[in-house]
Computed example of a mutant assay.
Amino acid sequence: MPTWFVTGASRGLGLQIARAALAGGDAVVITARDPDSLPDDLRQSERVLGTALDVTRDEDIARAVEAAVDRFGGIDVLVNNAGRGLIGALEEITDAEARSLFDLNVFGLINVTRTVVPVMREAGHGKIVHIGSQSGFEGTPGASMYSASKFAVAGISESLSVELGPFGIQSMVVEPGVFRTDFLDSSSLSTAAHRIPAYDGTPAHQALDWTIQANHTQFGDPAKGAALIYEVTCQDKLPAHLALGRDAVERQHVKIAQLQDDLAAWQEKSSATARDDAV
């Protein structure tokens, strides 16, 4: 019976991933800052351990991982889902706002992963699923800091997929588009406190308008998205990237075509920058 360890699992995609794993017959460690907020149907299952975890607190991480190992004997799948968003033009975002975002989205993920990896190394196997974003594959105007945090997640995942390969541990980044969760609520999405009127009518502020209009009308179904994440994770080999949602698939095709065009336009001159005496 594989054991899943899911951060930020009290709602949204994390909650649906936990439900998918439970429905698949697996054991699930469901973590949240407030474990009392976890739904009763999950807390009452013998195959579920609900535990408090704020991924920005090292002591919480160590305690939660230890509890998971004590209860189920190990961790087979780590799902790094905890995170939040930040909207605003780069010029509007303060250092404090940016650092707070990275503490959760990036350093929290790093510290959870760093704590779980020894458990997986000792077992000789494991899978790490990082919940990134389409905004971590293609930069989003008005969300530059959020995009930067999710680009970091993608880079970490790609590196880990090679770095941890010798230990039988795989890594995948999931890049969802828009799904109908609470992500656009103020509880998960912050807006830069300082607003510069010069950006009104430009893409940076249009992003904020979009979040207001799109909240709870997004076309992505989180239960279906979680079911696909579960299906893919159960395969023998994980893909490096998993685009999740129709919009994510479409935009990734656009971005890949753009990268190919940029590469073709300058590849000859770029290659010619090598030293003449290079072997």
Rank of each mutant, 00 (worst) to 15 (best):
I61D: 07
L101K: 07
D54Y: 09
G136Y: 02
D221K: 04
G83P: 09
H130N: 15
F167V: 07
V29R: 03
F72W: 08
K269P: 00
Q260E: 15
A226K: 00
D41V: 01
H241Y: 13
G177N: 03
E92C: 01
T233K: 04
L189Q: 08
T56H: 04
D262Y: 02
G83A: 09
G142W: 09
N111H: 15
E59H: 12
R99S: 05
R33L: 00
R195G: 01
L228S: 11
K255V: 11
K127E: 00
C234Y: 00
L53Q: 06
V249D: 11
I131N: 13
G177K: 02
H194N: 14
G25W: 07
A27Y: 13
T113G: 00
G25R: 10
P118D: 06
G14F: 10
I156E: 02
G108D: 04
A192H: 07
Q213E: 14
V112R: 03
S133L: 11
Q258L: 09
F219E: 13
F102I: 10
A18N: 06
D40Y: 10
A123W: 08
S133M: 13
A264K: 10
R246T: 12
G25K: 09
R275T: 02
T273A: 08
I131V: 15
V129K: 14
S190I: 03
A223F: 03
P39K: 03
V55S: 06
R99Y: 12
M145C: 07
A96D: 08
Y230G: 01
A264P: 00
A264I: 05
Q16N: 14
L109K: 06
F137W: 15
R63M: 11
R71K: 15
Q260M: 09
E158A: 15
G88V: 05
F102E: 04
D41K: 06
T233I: 00
R43K: 13
A20V: 07
M172Q: 12
H253P: 00
V28W: 09
F167Y: 14
L184S: 06
L86C: 02
L101W: 13
H241R: 15
P141R: 06
A278W: 13
S37D: 13
A274P: 00
T94Q: 01
A64W: 02
T191M: 10
A67W: 11
V55F: 05
A23S: 14
S45K: 12
L78Y: 09
V178G: 10
V6T: 05
S187G: 15
S271R: 15
H216D: 12
L109W: 06
R47K: 15
E92M: 00
L244I: 08
A18R: 07
S161W: 06
V65D: 05
M1V: 08
Q213Y: 01
I131C: 11
D41G: 03
R71P: 00
G168Y: 02
L101P: 13
L244T: 03
